[in-house]
């Protein structure tokens, strides 16, 4: 069973934007695309841990602000020639609220 945690209203993140949330084991970046999809990824680029929440969001990708790696929001995979992957977590919007899967937090604390 998925147990969703209500994080914040969707409009707290601008379209094509992101915000960071704190968890005991590091930060998670929550992204909102132009068409109001949300994605949650570790806020650390697989290259040199750049803060992905500060990147430019385009389509369903984000470009890291430090050295321009492009990361897929869907898979967490680095695109193009770069190799690497960040963890992704289930996220969705319901009734204008952003919801994250509670089990992801537990999975993180267990890790």
């Amino acid at each position: 069973m998925t147990d969703w945690i209500d994080i914040a209203p969707l409009e707290d993140i601008p379209p094509r934007g992101a915000r960071m949330i704190k968890t005991p084991l590091g930060c998670v970046a929550v992204f909102r695309t132009a068409d109001d999809q949300v994605f949650a990824l570790d806020n650390a680029c697989p290259h040199k841990a750049g803060p992905l929440a500060e990147g430019i969001v385009h389509g369903t990708s984000v470009t890291c602000p430090l050295h321009n790696w492009v990361i897929s929001l869907e898979t967490g995979e680095a695109q193009g020639a770069d190799e690497g992957r960040v963890a992704t977590y289930p996220a969705r919007v319901d009734g204008g609220r952003i919801l994250l899967d509670r089990t992801f937090l537990q999975a993180r604390s267990a890790a």
């Binding site: 945690i5 994080i7 914040a8 707290d12 993140i13 915000r19 960071m20 949330i21 704190k22 968890t23 005991p24 084991l25 930060c27 929550v30 952003i98 509670r102 937090l105 537990q106 993180r108 604390s109």
Partner: peptide, 14 residues
């Protein structure tokens, strides 16, 4: 407020 974390879940997991 845009400069603050969207949420702080540190307590949640604890």
């Amino acid at each position: 407020d845009r400069y603050q974390p969207l949420a702080n879940l540190s307590l949640e997991a604890a």
